[in-house]
Deep mutational scan, measured.
Amino acid sequence: MWEAGIQHIELEKGSKGLGFSILDYQDPIDPASTVIIIRSLVPGGIAEKDGRLLPGDRLMFVNDVNLENSSLEEAVEALKGAPSGTVRIGVAKPLP
Rank of each mutant, 00 (worst) to 15 (best):
Glu10Asp: 15
Leu18Ser: 02
Lys80Ile: 07
Val62Leu: 11
Gly56Val: 01
Pro31Gly: 11
Arg58Ala: 04
Ile37Phe: 05
Asn63Ile: 00
Gly51Ile: 01
Val65Glu: 10
Lys93Ser: 07
Ile37Gly: 05
Tyr25Asp: 15
Val65Arg: 11
Ile89His: 00
Gln7Gly: 04
Glu48His: 09
Pro28Ala: 13
Ala82Glu: 11
Val35Ser: 15
Pro83Val: 07
Asn63Ala: 04
Glu68His: 06
Ile29His: 14
Glu10Ile: 08
Val35Lys: 13
Asn69Ile: 09
Val76Ser: 12
Ile9His: 02
Gly45Gln: 04
Pro96Ser: 09
Ile46Asn: 15
Gly51Phe: 01
Pro43Asp: 09
Glu68Pro: 02
Leu54Gln: 14
Glu10Thr: 08
Lys80Trp: 10
Leu41His: 02
Ile9Val: 04
Asn63Ser: 03
Ala32Pro: 15
Glu68Thr: 09
Ile46Asp: 11
Leu79Tyr: 03
Lys16Trp: 05
Asp50Glu: 03
Leu59Thr: 01
Val42Ile: 07
Gly19Thr: 01
Glu77Asn: 09
Gly51Lys: 07
Ile36Arg: 00
Asn63Asp: 08
His8Asp: 05
Pro94Asn: 15
Ala47Gly: 04
Leu54Thr: 12
Ser33Pro: 14
Gly44Cys: 10
Tyr25Ser: 15
Ile9Asn: 01
Gly44Ser: 09
Ile6Tyr: 12
Ser84Asp: 10
Lys13Tyr: 07
Ile36Met: 06
Gln7Arg: 07
Gln7Leu: 06
Ile29Thr: 09
Asn63Trp: 00
Val91Met: 07
Met60Gln: 04
Asn66Gly: 12
Ala78Thr: 11
Ser33Lys: 10
Lys80Asp: 10
Glu77Leu: 10
Asp50Asn: 14
Pro94Leu: 06
Glu12Gly: 04
Lys16Met: 10
Ala47Asn: 01
Thr34Ala: 13
Gly90Gln: 05
Gly90Phe: 00
Leu18Gln: 01
Ser15Glu: 09
Leu59Gln: 01
Val35Asn: 15
Met60Thr: 08
Ser84Phe: 11
Val35Leu: 09
Gly19Ile: 01
Ala92Tyr: 06
Leu95Ser: 13
Arg88Val: 11
Leu59Asn: 01
Lys80Arg: 08
Ser70Asp: 03
Lys13Pro: 09
Met1Lys: 15
Ser84Pro: 12
Ala75Asp: 00
Asp30Leu: 09
Leu59Ala: 00
Glu74Ile: 07
Val42Pro: 01
Ser84Met: 07
Pro94Gln: 15
Lys16His: 06
Gly5Met: 15
Ile29Cys: 11
Ala78Trp: 05
Leu95Tyr: 11
Ser21Asn: 15
Asp30Pro: 11
Ala4Pro: 06
Ser21Phe: 11
Ile89Asn: 00
Glu48Pro: 00
Leu67Cys: 14
Val91Gln: 02
Ala75Ile: 01
Gly19His: 00
Met1Tyr: 12
Tyr25Thr: 15
Met60Val: 10
Ser84His: 11
Ser33Val: 14
Val65Lys: 09
Glu12Tyr: 13
Ala47Gln: 01
Ile29Asn: 14
Gly19Pro: 02
Leu11Ser: 00
Thr34Asn: 12
Pro55Cys: 13
Ser21Tyr: 07
Pro31Lys: 09
Ser33Arg: 05
Leu54Gly: 15
Ile9Trp: 02
Asp64Ile: 01
Gly51Ser: 08
Asn63Val: 01
Val42Ser: 13
Asp64Lys: 13
Lys80Thr: 11
Met60Arg: 06
Leu67Ile: 13
Leu18Lys: 00
Lys93Thr: 04
Glu3Gly: 02
Ile36Lys: 04
Ile38Thr: 03
Leu95Phe: 11
Arg39Thr: 06
Gly17Val: 02
Gly19Tyr: 00
Glu48Asp: 06
Gly51Met: 04
Ala82Leu: 14
Glu3Asn: 05
Ile9Met: 09
Ala4Thr: 13
Leu41Trp: 02
Ile46Cys: 06
Ala82Arg: 03
Trp2Lys: 15
Leu67His: 03
Asp64Val: 02
Lys13Asp: 03
Lys49Leu: 15
Leu18Met: 10
Lys93His: 12
Glu68Leu: 08
Asp50Trp: 00
Ser70Ala: 08
Val65Ala: 12
Asp57Gly: 06
Lys49Val: 11
Pro96Asn: 07
Glu12Met: 10
Gly85Tyr: 02
Thr86Ala: 07
Gly85Thr: 04
Arg88Thr: 12
Lys49Asp: 05
Leu67Ala: 02
Asp24His: 04
Ala47Asp: 00
Asp50Cys: 09
Val65Thr: 13
Pro28Cys: 08
Met60Asp: 02
Ser40Gly: 15
Gly81Met: 14
Ala78Gly: 04
Phe61Thr: 10
Leu72Thr: 11
Trp2Glu: 13
Lys16Arg: 09
Arg88Met: 07
Glu73Trp: 06
Ile36Pro: 14
Ala82Tyr: 03
Ser15Thr: 12
Ser21Trp: 03
Pro83Trp: 04
Ala4Lys: 08
Glu10Cys: 08
Gly17Leu: 03
Asp24Lys: 06
His8Gln: 11
Lys93Leu: 03
Ile22His: 01
Lys80Leu: 08
Lys49Ile: 08
Leu11Val: 08
Leu95Asn: 08
Leu23Glu: 10
Lys80Glu: 07
Asp24Val: 03
Arg39Gly: 15
Ala78Pro: 00
Ile38Cys: 06
Glu48Met: 05
Val76Gly: 14
Gly56Thr: 02
Gly44Leu: 06
Ile38Pro: 00
Glu73Tyr: 11
Phe61Gly: 09
Leu54Cys: 06
Ser40Leu: 04
Ile22Asn: 01
Glu77Trp: 11
Lys80Gly: 10
Arg88Asp: 11
Gly81Leu: 12
Lys93Gly: 04
Ser33Tyr: 07
Glu10Ser: 11
Glu73Ser: 11
Gly81Asn: 14
Ile9Ser: 02
Val42Asn: 11
Leu72Gly: 07
Asp30Phe: 06
Ser84Gln: 07
Val35Gln: 14
Phe20Lys: 00
Phe61Ile: 08
Phe61Lys: 12
Ile89Lys: 01
Leu95Ile: 12
Glu48Gly: 05
Gly19Trp: 00
Ile29Trp: 10
Leu53Cys: 06
Ser71Ile: 06
Leu53His: 00
Val76Cys: 11
Lys13Gly: 14
Ser70Pro: 04
Phe20Gly: 00
Glu73Pro: 11
Trp2Arg: 06
Asp24Gly: 04
Arg88Ser: 09
Gly90Ala: 06
Ser84Val: 09
Leu41Ile: 10
Gly44Tyr: 06
Asp57Gln: 15
Thr34Arg: 14
Ser84Glu: 05
Val62Gln: 00
Val91Asn: 01
Leu95Val: 07
Ala47Val: 04
Glu48Trp: 05
Glu3Thr: 09
Lys93Arg: 09
Gln26Pro: 10
Ile36Val: 13
Phe20Pro: 00
Glu74Trp: 06
Ala4His: 07
Ala4Phe: 13
Ser40Met: 13
Gly17Trp: 02
Asp24Cys: 03
Gly14Leu: 06
Ala82Lys: 04
Gly17Lys: 03
Pro83Asp: 04
Glu73His: 13
Ile38Lys: 00
Gly14Tyr: 12
Ser40Asn: 10
Pro94Tyr: 07
Gly45Phe: 02
Leu59Gly: 01
Ala82Trp: 03
Val65Trp: 08
Thr34Glu: 15
Asn63Phe: 01
Asp64Tyr: 05
Val65His: 09
Gly19Glu: 05
Leu59Met: 04
Asp57Cys: 05
Lys16Leu: 08
Glu48Leu: 04
Arg58Thr: 01
Leu79Gln: 02
Lys93Phe: 02
Phe20Gln: 00
Phe20Asp: 00
Pro83Cys: 06
Leu23Ala: 14
Val42Trp: 10
Ile6Lys: 03
Ser70Val: 11
Ala92Asn: 08
Ser40Phe: 08
Ile89Pro: 00
Asp30Thr: 12
Asn66Pro: 07
Thr34Gly: 15
Val87Thr: 13
Asp30Lys: 11
Glu68Cys: 08
Gly45Trp: 01
Arg58Cys: 02
Thr34Cys: 09
Ser71Ala: 13
Glu10Arg: 09
Asp24Gln: 08
Leu23Asn: 15
Glu74Phe: 06
Leu72Gln: 07
Asp50Ile: 03
Lys80Met: 08
Ile6Thr: 09
Gly85Glu: 04
Val65Gln: 14
Lys13Asn: 13
Pro55Asn: 07
Lys93Met: 03
Tyr25Leu: 07
Glu77Met: 07
Ile89Leu: 14
Asn63Pro: 00
Val62Ser: 01
